[in-house]
Design a protein around this nucleic acid. Structure first.
Length: 351
DNA sequence: GGATCCTTCTTCTTCTTC
């Protein structure tokens, strides 16, 4: 088996073509005879092992199979939490009740709504009123077993590298940067000065957000008619709240915009994990919220980078938003189920 | 005044050789 692996990684046995000299039979080519290092594997009876080698080559698996990887992870990180549903089954799942994403046919496209400063509705939690969960909380509590596994693994690796305190400092720093970036943007977008003039930031902006602001400057060029900043949205029937980063026109289309900071590049929408679901959840709430007299069908996720590298902007079409709205409804169902099973278990305990 | 809330982020395979 060792020989086989070496043959495979050494290459050129199954497809014995010499790429330098277009000689079909690599072992017959003069370059092989003249090379300083003659591989002992050239003497391997390739005919005899061809089917075996072929099976290895075509299976596209490395010596580390999912099984061995899992075994290794279990040894290092403890048992893996298995997915409850397969991906295909998850795709087939449909919300029990398909709540509307858009509320009324008559979408107010009135120009007068676009004039004036953006709204900023603060979050009010009345003491007497029942607790309403937030978008972030629901997303956090309904992560898939895979997500939990990868996050836990990442956390353990980071702690192993930085230590408990180092890791705490690292995450605090990430949060601080995100918050500073958001507040700097809030200042830029709410100020009367045109976005473009302010996109480079101001003297008051801390040095560590300058790169992020530079990163999104080309995005800000395409943003106009800012209508809401850091504003609370509440779904009137689905009973959840959230705070939208921004509602504005991006390239002429009204969007719920979510600003993100990231150390790693996120060039694809799939790199943003639950962010699209979060945006769809906000938009759906906003569309049902009487405080907003318009509907938002599109979304935008902007990932900014500290070193000033141009941000990645992921635009969510109305169609995509509907798709993520359904995912959100499923997450809401899971959350409700979780809560009811929790309360019933508490009830049983107290009985 | 203290506690809590909403956010802020973090994930997706891995190894060697020329």
């Amino acid at each position: 088996m060792f020989i086989l692996k070496r043959v495979v990684s050494g290459g050129g046995i199954i497809v014995p073509r010499c790429t330098s000299h277009s000689v079909r039979n690599f072992s017959a080519c003069h370059c092989l005879r003249s090379t300083k290092r003659l591989s002992p594997y050239n003497t391997v009876d390739s005919e005899r092992y061809s089917s075996l080698v072929k099976s290895v080559m075509t299976s596209r698996t490395s010596s580390q199979t999912p099984e061995t990887l899992q075994e290794e992870d279990e040894n290092i990180y403890g048992p893996v939490i298995k997915a409850q549903t397969s991906k295909s089954r998850q795709d087939e799942r449909v919300p029990k009740i398909l709540h509307q994403f858009l509320q009324s046919e008559e979408t107010m496209e009135a120009e007068e709504l676009e004039s004036g400063p953006p709204v900023q509705i603060p979050l009010k939690r009345d003491k007497g009123s029942p607790f309403i969960p937030s978008v972030t909380r629901i997303l956090q509590q309904t992560l898939s077993p895979e997500q939990i596994f990868y996050l836990e693994r990442w956390k353990k690796r980071m702690i192993a590298e930085l230590g408990e305190d180092g890791f705490k400092e690292y995450t605090q720093n990430l949060f601080r940067q995100g918050k500073l970036f958001h507040s700097a943007l809030e200042g830029i977008l709410t100020s009367g000065v045109t976005i473009k003039d302010k996109s480079s930031g101001t003297a008051e902006d801390p040095a560590e957000v300058q790169g992020y602001l530079e990163s999104i400057s080309h995005i800000l060029d395409d943003i106009g008619a800012v209508r809401a900043i850091e504003s609370t949205v509440q779904h009137d029937t689905l009973n959840y709240v959230g705070i939208v980063d921004c509602v504005a026109r991006y390239r002429g289309v009204l969007c719920v915009i979510d600003w993100k900071t990231s150390d790693k590049p996120k060039p694809f929408l799939s790199n943003t994990y639950d962010n699209p679901v979060q945006v769809a959840a906000y938009a759906g709430a906003l569309n049902s919220d009487g405080n907003y007299k318009y509907q938002v069908e599109n979304g935008l996720i902007v990932v900014a980078y500290k070193d000033g590298t141009p941000a990645h902007a992921h635009q969510l079409s109305a169609e995509l938003m509907l798709q993520y709205w359904k995912t959100w409804l499923l997450r809401l169902e899971d959350f409700a189920e979780q809560r009811s099973s929790h309360t019933s278990s508490v009830y049983a305990k107290n009985k």
